[in-house]
Simulated scan of single mutants.
Amino acid sequence: MFLAPMLIVLGAVALFPLGQTIWFGFTDASLNNIDAARFVGLRNYIEWLDYGNGQGEWLGLLADDRWWRAVRNTVWFAVVSVSFETLFGLIIALVLNAKFPGRAVVRTLVLVPWAIPTVVSAKMWGWMLHDQFGIINDMLIKLGLIATPIAWTASADTAMAAVMMVDIWKTTPFMALLILAGLQMIPDDIYEAARLDGINPVRVFRKVTLPLVMPALLVGVVFRGLDALRVFDIVYVLTPNTDATRTMSVYARENLFDYDKFAYGSAASTLLFLIVALITIGFIYLTRMDLEGKETD
């Protein structure tokens, strides 16, 4: 009874639109005929177009090379970004967990990138990475690391790296905050006992700190993984209409609104939902995450 209001709101703002999106993926809906959409089965996902005389080709989302490239871009972005964010977040959390003068101020400053709206961060970094006016190229040239300015977000060779760099800069504080919360739950008595026993600090980290902070770390990885697999804003602002960085969300949005292929875009959104769900469930299963707080083998 107490959960009923939350479930009703959740159904209205999440489950109902999700159900509609899945339904539109099986229709011929467009922005002009949504109400008159007809059921077409799996045509948006896969269809064999027969030209006669044994000639034909596969059409649909599952046969679209641009879609599969978007899938690869998204997975690669998620794996690299979340890996670096976890590593840097752990290092920052360990530093912030230590006692030193001005620790509260440092903690506040570390959270600034995460607090800045994503679109604002992307526009700011877009100017910093600009090939003619950006401060990044200016600094690298003065240091002698490059000879000519680099079009970081316009070149296919550097666009994905630039997007990853911005995402890592912005979201590492989120990982650090979650890991820091886990570190502060570890009793000081454990470290005091290890110090009295003369155990090497590296061994203490491997045998004590890392296992005890692992639940918080895995929760952070799951949350960040979900966000990274659904990434849209950073990519759309920094590198619009670029095959090198096009993600599943950007691909779905283009078909939904730019190309007026509403049904096709709905099918892409549905596959995005399924891919994110399968990857998340697989990660939880492989890491044996205990979401109910019970003992696991």
Rank of each mutant, 00 (worst) to 15 (best):
V105R: 05
M248Y: 09
V79T: 11
L177I: 10
V276F: 07
N32P: 00
T239G: 06
N32G: 15
V204D: 09
K142G: 01
L286Q: 12
V202L: 14
P101S: 08
M165L: 15
L210M: 14
L96N: 10
L10N: 10
L61S: 08
W114M: 11
V237I: 14
G52I: 02
V13S: 07
S155T: 08
E85V: 08
T21G: 12
P240D: 08
M164G: 00
D131M: 01
P201L: 07
V119G: 03
F77Q: 06
I168T: 07
D65E: 14
W169G: 08
M248L: 15
G144A: 05
L217F: 11
N33I: 04
D243N: 12
A12S: 11
V79S: 09
A244F: 01
V9L: 14
T21K: 01
G54D: 06
R38D: 14
P211T: 05
D28Q: 06
D197N: 10
L90P: 00
Q132Y: 03
L94A: 12
N200T: 06
S249E: 02
V202N: 10
M124G: 15
L210F: 15
D258V: 14
F77W: 10
V213N: 07
G293C: 05
A37P: 00
L61A: 06
G52E: 07
T21Y: 04
